[in-house]
């Protein structure tokens, strides 16, 4: 029941986060995974103490509302997510704020659309070979020809940088792919 006294209202905090994943993630899958992680870590009583709500999620960045006494718990819940609907993912906490407005202004840049495009280029080196899936700044995700190369870490793609591919140069500043 809604309290009429503002002083009795629970205080909230807003966690801004970034999702790094090997594929596209929708907000419904994300909140399901976060709630399942919270339930398995802290149980029903823990969920009741700290009701999480996904305020927004767009272009891999989102805002999550939590109770102001359970911030560390919420961080642990987000860090304990290793995959979302079978897609390998990691949730990175960017920052914490007291209002939606300040959290958005501080931690969610408006022009931050991450573009994941199929590159179509191939890499043939002595040690590794495969197709480039996407590039982001200096980072290169590679679909390896031999699946056993990613066996130990359960990932689909190998993570390389343009420096590994001999295209990196001293003045590379992260704005070009350097390949």
């Amino acid at each position: 029941m809604r309290s009429k006294l503002p002083v009795l209202r629970t205080r909230r905090r807003y966690l801004a986060f970034l999702v790094e994943a090997e594929g596209e993630i929708c907000s419904k899958d994300l909140i399901e995974e976060i709630q399942s992680s919270q339930l398995s870590l802290f149980g029903d009583a823990g969920v009741a103490r700290n009701r999480l709500k996904l305020i927004s999620f767009q272009n891999g960045r989102g805002l999550l509302r939590c109770h102001h006494h359970h911030i560390q718990e919420t961080r642990a819940v987000l860090a304990a997510v290793g995959s979302i609907k079978g897609i390998r993912a990691a949730i990175r906490t960017k920052g914490l704020s007291g209002t939606i407005k300040s959290a958005t202004e501080k931690y969610i840049p408006q022009l931050s659309k991450l573009s994941f495009e199929n590159d179509g280029r191939r890499i043939e080196l002595e040690e590794v070979s495969g197709c480039i899936i996407r590039t982001r700044g200096l980072e290169v995700d590679l679909c390896p020809d031999d699946r056993s190369w990613t066996k130990g870490s359960d990932t689909m793609y190998m993570g390389l940088t343009s420096f590994d591919l001999c295209g990196g140069h001293e003045d590379a500043d992260g704005t070009t792919d350097g390949l």
Partner: peptide, 19 residues
């Protein structure tokens, strides 16, 4: 960690360690 997706920030690691 064996990939960048396994890595967690120091504060997240501390939160997990507290659990």
């Amino acid at each position: 960690a064996r990939s960048h997706l396994d890595l967690r920030s120091p504060r997240d690691l501390a939160a997990l360690a507290e659990v």
